[in-house]
Design a binder for these strands. Structure first.
Ligand SMILES: [Mn+2]
Ligand SMILES: [Mn+2]
Ligand SMILES: [Zn+2]
Ligand SMILES: [Zn+2]
Lengths: 144, 144
DNA sequence: GTTGGAGTTGCGAATGTTTCTCATTCTCAT
DNA sequence: ATGAGAATGAGAAACATTCGCAACTCCAAC
């Protein structure tokens, strides 16, 4: 694979490789959340020689450069998404696996309070809610 | 190992084995959070034939019976703690690894809101805050 | 355009956590 | 005491992620 152009701004001096460009594009083309394995699958279909290790290394770099966010959504593995402007949180249905995003200003209040009460400098606030969506609840009612 | 007595209430009908009794006691004797490996280490020193698989199987059972809570504290592995009466959340220092527990009533408000706005039945609410404690911040200041 | 050295990659092996399989053993209602 | 069902130990397997290293690529300086 060959380099087309060098918009070296985003990667802050880190070499722009074809792999990094591809992976970043694939993440950005994803609506929602993607895990390393699925990103690797999609990348492989464009560049069959790409390595899973490169996917992980690139994800780590993108994270460090604040290009993507890493999320724990109830499972062992991590999911990734492009860095959004405002923070948002996640709601996961244990029934169907649906992931709903939502914003809440209460989080900021809470973080402020914790920072002043504990002298802590909070750099990451992640709220994870789990439960059952309306559909899954009604389904469960029907079968019981 | 042999059974001494059968206080079969907690385990809700599941057989009371020496391993389960030992593991539950070790968790309860722990102040704070313990992971499977450390629990296995401690259990091994009491019963050298206990298996790591049994540790994991027991933790899953205890979780199902609401005897312990499973927590993700920034790392890959899970930590366990005895089920508390009121919910509480965690604040983890990336510098020294300190884990601070705190309560916040704002979480309930937030959960209520999400439940009504999204028709969701929330069964688990976990807020994870990460950052640097006062000590670690001052240390960083000193060395920069 | 060439060069060179730092940084990146692919590959496979290694790590770390958690789950599975299955033969053996234990628990507890009867 | 008995037996059906459940739990256990041991090791293999599954799964996500990281590491080590030789080969390759990027790109600033010429
Ligand atoms: Mn999201
Ligand atoms: Mn806790
Ligand atoms: Zn659902
Ligand atoms: Zn600290």
């Amino acid at each position: 694979m060959r380099n087309i152009r060098n918009s070296n701004i985003e990667l802050k001096g880190h070499p722009v490789t074809a792999q990094r460009r591809l992976l970043l594009k694939l993440i950005r083309d994803t609506r929602g959340h993607i895990d390393a394995k699925e990103l690797y699958r999609r990348a492989s279909s464009m560049d069959e020689s790409i390595s899973l290790a490169t996917v992980y290394r690139s994800l780590r770099l993108f994270k460090e450069l604040d290009l993507v966010d890493e999320r724990r959504l109830g499972q062992v593995r991590c999911y990734y998404e492009v860095k959004q402007l405002g923070e948002h949180q996640h709601l996961v249905c244990k029934g169907c696996g649906a992931v709903i995003e939502f914003k809440s200003s209460l989080i900021h209040k809470l973080v402020d309070k914790v920072q002043s009460e504990h002298g802590f400098n909070v750099t990451k606030a992640e709220l994870y809610l789990e439960g059952y969506c309306k559909e899954c609840r009604e389904e469960a009612k029907g079968s019981s």
